[in-house]
Structure formats: C-alpha cells, structure tokens
Design a binder for these strands. Structure first.
Length: 463
DNA sequence: ATGTCC
C-alpha cells in the first residue's frame, strides 16, 4: 500500500481499482501502520455510497473487515450502506469516566480495591450487578438505555446530561434483536466482560487546559473511576446474526465487496433498517451496563471512603449513527473511533456547549488514559482515536510476559491489581499496545481533538 | 470483543 505523507499527521492513500474515494490515515511517522490495516482502509473505500474518504485514526490496526480505528460515512439518500463490520462485534463498546471529590492521599485504596474486586462482575458470562425482572425490563433497557437505569434508581438525573445522546440512542427496535441475543443479554447487565475491558481508579496527573478541565469537573490530583466495556454477549450475537443476514442479501442489491467481512446493505433496505434498529438497542444496552457499573463504583466510594463520584461523560467508540453533515444525511461508522463533538454542537448539554464534548481515551493497565475535547474543523465527521491500539496479538503478548510478572511490576509502581486469571492479564500487557501518548499527540496534531487532561492508573479491576 | 465452534 502506498501512503503519501501530506502533512506531519496526515497520510493519503490514492484511489486504485474499485476504491470510490481515497483513504486518509492520521498518524505520525513513528506510529506503526500495519499493511493489513491499510488494505482494510482501501477495502472500506469501495463501499457503495461512501463519501469524502475512508479514514484511519492514529491507533489504526487490523480488525474484522473494517480496521479498528476506522471511520466511514455513507450517503443515506444515495444508496449508502451500513455494515456491521464497520461497528464491530462489541457494539457500543465505550468509556465512562466519573470524578471523585477526593485525592489519593488518605484514600483507603486497598480496601476500596478489595471491595471493587469482590463486587464487580467480570470475565466470561459469569454474574451481573442487575437482575432484571424479566424480558419486558430488558426491552426497556434496549429502548431507553441509561435513562431506564436512572429511572430505576441506578444513578441521578444529571448523569443523563453527561451521556452521549443523553443516555439513549433513538431508533432502537427490540423486535430486531433475536431470541438468542435476548437470552444472552438477560443476565449480563452490570458486567465488565474481559479482554481490554476494565474498571480503573486513576488520578489526574496533568491538566493541559484548566478552563475546559474545570467545565468537565476535573482538576489535578483528583481520583477518578474509568470504566471501559460494551454490550457483552447481546451485542456480539446481534453482530453475528446481522452479518449473516446481510451476507445473504448483498448480492440481491448488486453489491460486490472485496472482503466478505464487509457484508453490508443499503441503510434504506429491510436488512439495513433491521441492523440499525438492533444496533441501537445494543447501544442502549451498553449504556445501561456502564450506568450500572458506575453506580457500583459510587456505592463503593461512598461506603469505604465517604466520597462522591460525579459523571464526567459516557461515550462509545463502536457505533454507526445517522448524522447530518454539510446538509447531507450520512451513516457514520466509527469502529475504534470516538465521537468528538465540537463546541456549539446541539448534541451537547448547555454547560458543555462552549467547550466541546469530553472524549475519553482508555490506555492500557500500566499507562495513561486521556480526556480530550472535540474541536471545530476536524475532517473525520467529528471523530478521533479510541485508545492505544494493539501492536501484538493476544498470543504474542502472553508469550512475551507472564501475568504474575506483569502484576508484580504494576504493584511495584503503586498500581493495585485485581485480576481474574494470569493469562488474561498477560494478554493485556502494556507492551502489546502502541504508545497512547503518541496516539493522542498525533490525534491532536491532526486537528481531530485537543488534550484536556492525562490520567494515570492507581488501581485496576480486570476481567 | 465473544458461553473464543452449533
């Protein structure tokens, strides 16, 4: 793949063969760009109705069909398609950040971590914080997301002002969620899952913009809770089901894609509408999940430390949304790419209108996480990076370091670790990821966002 | 990411 560097942080992938638009990758010269991921950027550029470019964020890496760190928008009124591969298996995977009213000094960290370690459900399919009253309540969650959770006392009304789409993505259609997905979803509301998902205690190590940080409720030295998780088995099953349906239907629409994993259908088709309805339901499930987990963190902080947690924001980095850009209705796929609304955007609550959307970037266990803000003038439909981005496979990572050694290293740096298995811990070693500081610097350099605060971990709860 | 293969 031939990349042409146009500016320090922007690379162009010229149109060749069936590409309808060029590729554009935001990165810096030192960030590794896998050839397979660039091939996927080019493949996405062939999708019917794609507009402007197939974009890659600085944390770009290989994924299912679409690259992770990919953004692609299609024109709904020009036969534009929606593709489940452009969202990913973990629909609505995202991050929630809560800020406490306390500093690390005097915080009973280990007692707090013991309680969180004992009470936060994580790992494969075992337990959840919220026992639903039945299928109707699951349907309420699919329709209303975090709003339903708050309505049931799992949070306060102000939380919804600090959630993407004010807590619920419109258009959710529980009827498009298959029986198996419903079954899997019933017992997992309020659970982290595994892999790179976590609940971390972090401290604000550096503030880059005092005024914006203050508007977000952040200040140096403050203890925060970051939660990174998604829609668990429900979202996974929805993706599986709808990829299959689109794979079958695609030929009937005359759609030909270079990779079967790019299965798609026009937004304005029965398959397209069905997927978007189910995807929105999974999005709301993910939000209710993070709302429930955030409430558990509040309970722990309150009982152990007498401390309060206020929601900074909750935002997804795996979603497709119907949005208006330059007068056109677009289906914007963000897969491993975070929504970053600029100042003045109507999607923001009044008190964030002047500063832009809080953008939450989870790092790895041993490294920093970031709070960024959306900016005006970004090129990729109000999107930016989503995290460090893997450089090693899970297998490679586990071969390079043992979980025991990793835990010992983290503990020696004052990071309390509450894991589940050694193998899972090793697979998530920071050495298996890109340098999140470089990813964020490139994202800012490319004009996609700006830095507000850098957070460092002091306690990690992992699946 | 995922009851890591129905």
């Amino acid at each position: 793949m031939r990349l042409v560097q146009e500016t320090p942080y922007r690379f162009r992938l010229d149109r060749t063969g069936p590409m309808r638009v060029p590729g554009v990758v935001f990165a810096s010269a030192t960030l590794l760009l896998e050839d397979e991921a660039l091939r996927q950027v080019a493949n996405v550029a062939t999708l019917p109705g794609i507009v402007r470019a197939s974009y890659g964020m600085p944390d770009l890496h290989w994924g299912y069909g679409f690259p992770i760190g990919g953004v692609a928008a299609t024109d709904v009124e020009q036969g534009g398609v929606v593709s489940p591969g452009g969202v990913g298996f973990d629909i609505s995977c995202g991050v929630r950040l809560l800020a406490s009213d306390t500093r690390r000094d005097g915080l009973p960290l280990h007692r707090l971590m013991d309680l969180l370690g004992d009470t936060v459900p994580r790992g494969a399919a075992t337990g959840a914080l919220w026992t639903l009253s039945g299928r109707p309540e699951l349907e309420a969650i699919l329709r209303d997301g975090a709003r339903h959770a708050v309505g049931q006392g799992r949070g306060v009304p102000r939380d919804l002002e600090r959630c993407e789409d004010f807590g619920a993505l419109p258009g959710a259609d529980p009827a498009q969620v298959g029986a198996r997905a419903m079954e899997r979803g019933l017992g997992q509301v309020g659970s982290l899952g595994s892999g790179n998902h976590f609940l971390e205690l972090q401290t604000v190590e550096q503030v880059y913009d005092e005024a914006v940080a203050a508007a977000f409720g952040l200040r140096a030295g403050q203890v925060c809770v970051m939660i990174h998780c998604g829609s668990r088995g429900l979202g996974h099953q929805i993706c599986t089901d709808h990829v299959r349906a689109m794979d079958k239907a695609m030929a009937g629409y005359g759609i030909d894609v270079p990779d079967r994993q790019l299965a798609c259908a026009p937004v304005e088709s029965p398959e397209g509408r069905a997927y978007l309805g189910a995807m929105a339901a999974a999005a709301n499930y993910g939000r209710a999940n993070r709302q429930a987990l955030g409430q558990a963190a509040r309970d722990a902080f309150s009982s152990i430390a007498g401390a309060r947690l206020d929601l900074v924001y909750d935002v997804s980095h795996n979603l497709a949304k119907i949005e208006e850009h330059d007068g056109r209705l677009l289906c914007v796929h963000r897969k491993g790419a975070t929504l970053a609304l600029p100042p003045g955007h109507p999607g923001l609550p009044g008190d964030l209108r002047l500063v832009g959307q809080p953008v939450l970037i989870p790092g790895t266990m041993g490294t920093a996480s970031y709070v960024l803000a959306g900016v005006a003038g970004g090129e990729a439909f109000h999107s930016t990076c989503h995290g460090a981005g893997r450089t090693q496979s899970r297998h490679q990572a586990a071969r390079a370091i043992s979980g025991k050694e990793l835990r010992a290293r983290l503990e020696s740096r004052g990071i309390a670790v509450r894991g589940l298995g050694w193998r899972g811990l090793a697979e998530e070693a920071p050495s298996a990821y890109k340098d999140v500081d470089a990813v964020v610097a490139a994202s800012e350099g490319a004009g996609l966002c700006r830095r507000v605060a850098r957070l460092v971990p002091i306690g990690v709860v992992k699946g």
